[in-house]
Each structure stands twice: as C-alpha cells, then as structure tokens.
Design a protein around this nucleic acid. Structure first.
Ligand SMILES: [Mn+2]
Ligand SMILES: [Mn+2]
Ligand SMILES: [Zn+2]
Ligand SMILES: [Zn+2]
Lengths: 150, 150
DNA sequence: TCTTTGTTGATAATTATTATTGTTTAAATT
DNA sequence: AATTTAAACAATAATAATTATCAACAAAGA
C-alpha cells in the first residue's frame, strides 16, 4: 500500500460523499489487499491488531456503505454467510467446499460465450443485470493453490 | 400428487434409510409441487394449515436430512438466507432482485458450452463437482412471468 | 409384546447481522 | 484558529435465521 494508493482511496471516498475516516481507510485497505473474500468478522480480526478500539459493528456498517456506493461487492457462501470482495469488475468464483476458499476466476472468452448465449436465448419480462458462473468442487491438495491454465 | 407419486416418494425415503413419516412425506410433497424455491419458513407455513402440530425445527431438520441424502438441494439468496429446491438435476437460476423470486433455467446447450470451456481451461489442483450460472436482474412487470425463448 | 433406535415437538441456544444511542470526529463555516 | 454541524463511531441491545437439546413418541425388529 503506497502513499499514492492511499490518496486514491481517499479520493474515492470523497467522490462518493463519504467522510475520510481512519476506519474506512483501513477497512478498505485490508479488503483490497486480501484475495480470500473475507467475512466482516475476518476483516475485523485483521484490523483489530493495529486498531484495538475499532468495533465490529462499524466494520459491518462500513462494508454495507461501501456496497451501497458500489465500492465493493457482497457475495455469499453456500453456507449462507456473507463475504466481501474488493474486485468490482464482473468475474466468476470458484468455491472449494472443504477449505471454504473462494477464488476469483475472470475470463473474457467465457463472458462473451455466455453473453452471446443469453442474447440468443432471450429472457422475456426481465432486465438482465449481471451473470456469474459459480464453480464448486474440492481442492485436491489443500496446501497448494488452485491454478487456472489453458 | 397421485397415489403413484406418493408410493414413489416412500420408496425414495426407504432407499436412503429414512423412516417414512407423515412429516417427511408432506415436506417433500410441498417442496416438490412448489417452483418458487421456498425457505424453511415458507414450507412450514404451507404445511401448518393441514398439520397444525408440526414444528418449524422439524422442517429445518428434515430439509437438512434430505439435503445430506441428496434428495433435494439447498441454494442461497443474495440476502444470505437459504432456500430449498426439489430439482436435483443440474440447472441454473434466475434471481429477480426485487421480487426475490428464483426461477429455474435449464439449458443443455449452455451446459455443454460451459463444460467444453472448462475442459479447455483446466483448473489445476481442483476436482470440479458442479457449476451453475447465476443470472440476476429485475422483472419488468412484476405481475407477469419471466419466460425464456429462442 | 418388548426392545431398540430414529424421529418429533417444544424449547433453549447460537450465530450472523442490524438497530439504537450517546459520544466523538471530520470537515464545513465563521 | 475557533466554532458549528452533520456524519461516523464504539458500545451495546435487539433481531432473524438456524441449530442444538431433550423428553416423549413411533416405527421396525427381535
Ligand atoms: Mn450462486
Ligand atoms: Mn443469518
Ligand atoms: Zn471475487
Ligand atoms: Zn432450481
């Protein structure tokens, strides 16, 4: 997290009419530098170390404000609890059913494939907002990473 | 719900080592004849009319048992609460963000398209179990149905 | 019929999330 | 720089959805 990045986040907050507070900065930072799609609780735990006075309620509230403003996205696990995602561009998720990890998976070819399909297959009386492919399965070696090739 | 259907459900329960109880039969029936992907609470409400003695806890427990045995599936809304689905074949869902409806959307062509894509795009250190396309948007006329054409 | 084991209903507990409220703070205004 | 004000905060209470407990009950088997 460079000084430039920090300035950029401040700008974003201001642009959305949000006051620049230490809590907001640190919550956004933590989420941005994490690729595991953490829950509010997880973000709170990370932040608490350096900011012992922060409240879990503030984390929830702040995340919700960010979602409303479109700064971040909210996704859900198959267990029904919410996770947050600093990536706001359209992308898909791979869910590992035993480690509970959620891994980003973006692919333009797939996007076009599906988009073309949905255009052909018209859905009447419906305005499509977005679509997402939800891939689920299990890591073979939980110690190693999932990697997309080909 | 014909007598044949009822016999068939009884067989299914027995096959999975589950005792055939009135509660289980009626829960499964209600879910099967509903296409709205209801929550436990919703199923409970429907059942209560004719079975005033049934307990909400039993509905939850029974649904969970069914999911474990693979008789039904559990899906989640973007709000984070769980819904149940009597359809267990692979299929996709269309989410209406304002009516909260979930509509089934099965398409073999799409399945093959995605399957072929994922084969090409290998995901390493991962065993794929299933994939689902999650389409979200809004009904234009909430009074009318969504319909797929083309 | 007796016994065993699984299932139910009633209820308590837990978990995740949201609401409330008095206090503090960022930033706009003087 | 000091003052004002609305927004944001921490602490805490409340809610909603779901799960756990347990005594009573019912189905299947001996
Ligand atoms: Mn999904
Ligand atoms: Mn919940
Ligand atoms: Zn993501
Ligand atoms: Zn379905």
């Amino acid at each position: 997290m460079t000084l430039k990045d920090l300035q950029y986040i401040k700008q974003k907050l201001a642009y959305h009419g949000l006051k620049v507070t230490h809590q907001r900065l640190v919550i956004y930072q933590v989420l941005q530098e994490t690729d595991t799609h953490p829950a509010a609780e997880g973000i709170y735990e990370k932040i608490k170390k350096r900011n012992p006075s922060i409240s879990l309620g503030t984390v929830y509230k702040t995340l919700e404000v960010f979602v409303k403003k479109g700064l971040i996205k909210k996704i859900n696990t198959s267990e029904g609890n919410m996770r947050y995602d600093a990536r706001i561009d359209n992308h898909n998720h791979i869910y590992c059913t035993n480690t509970k990890e959620i891994i980003d998976f973006k692919d333009l070819e797939l996007d076009m494939l599906v988009r073309a399909f949905l255009k052909r297959k018209k859905i009447g009386n419906f305005t499509l907002k977005e679509f997402r492919l939800h891939i689920s399965g299990e890591k073979i070696d939980p110690g190693k990473h999932i990697e997309i090739t080909g």
